[in-house]
Computed example of a mutant assay.
Amino acid sequence: MQTKPENDTDLRLKVNRETARLPWTELLKHFAAGNVVWVANSLDLVDVAVRISHDDKANISQWMNAGLVAKVSDQQAQSWLEADAELWAVVVSPFILVQQEKPTAQRVH
């Protein structure tokens, strides 16, 4: 069954609405179950979620091979815990995709 482009737009809107900032401590039980996936800041979290929900193996494999998408490592988990980090998160069952907040350019007045 082919997905129509308007369905993709609806899915992007749905995923975007379901994206939230969460403290890492709230995601620890999911990390322990092996269900938390890190997404590099160079990628768009919503786009990655949409690609995963479409089971787009080509792009996902490319990102994983490039080290841009990966299961959260013990080192990442520990550093986020120590920093009391908040992460952007979105659920694409059974996974929770997380991304660190992107640095914003500061303007000096």
Rank of each mutant, 00 (worst) to 15 (best):
D55L: 14
H109M: 08
R51P: 04
A33S: 10
V90F: 07
N35P: 04
E26L: 07
N65T: 06
R51K: 09
G67I: 13
Q75M: 00
E101S: 09
N7F: 11
P103S: 00
A49F: 10
A70S: 10
S73A: 10
R17G: 07
T19N: 04
T104P: 11
Q99C: 05
N59C: 00
D55K: 10
A89K: 12
N7P: 00
V91W: 06
L87N: 05
Q76G: 06
S73C: 06
F95C: 03
L11Y: 02
L87K: 04
L87M: 07
P94K: 15
H30C: 08
V90P: 12
L27A: 14
V72C: 09
V69L: 08
L27T: 07
N35V: 12
G34W: 04
L13C: 02
P103W: 02
I60M: 10
V69A: 03
L45A: 07
Q78D: 03
H30G: 10
L22M: 10
I52N: 03
D84P: 01
L22Q: 14
A83Y: 01
V72R: 05
F95R: 02
L11F: 04
E82I: 01
V108K: 13
N59V: 05
V98T: 11
D10H: 15
V39R: 08
R107N: 01
G67E: 03
N16V: 00
V15G: 00
S79Y: 01
M1A: 08
Q76C: 03
A40S: 09
N7C: 03
P23R: 11
D55E: 06
M64P: 04
Q2D: 08
V72P: 05
Q75H: 12
A77T: 07
I52G: 01
Q100N: 12
V46R: 02
A77H: 14
V15W: 00
N59E: 15
L11H: 02
A83D: 11
V36W: 05
A89I: 10
D56P: 00
W88R: 14
V46T: 10
G67D: 12
V36T: 04
Q106M: 05
I60T: 08
S93D: 01
A77N: 15
A77W: 12
V36G: 10
Q2W: 06
T3P: 00
L13D: 13
V48M: 08
F31I: 15
V39I: 07
N16Q: 13
S61H: 04
Q100M: 11
V90N: 05
T104A: 05
A83V: 01
V39S: 13
L68G: 00
R12N: 01
R107V: 13
K102V: 10
V48L: 09
I52L: 15
V48Y: 10
V39Y: 07
N35Y: 13
V72N: 09
Q100D: 02
R12T: 13
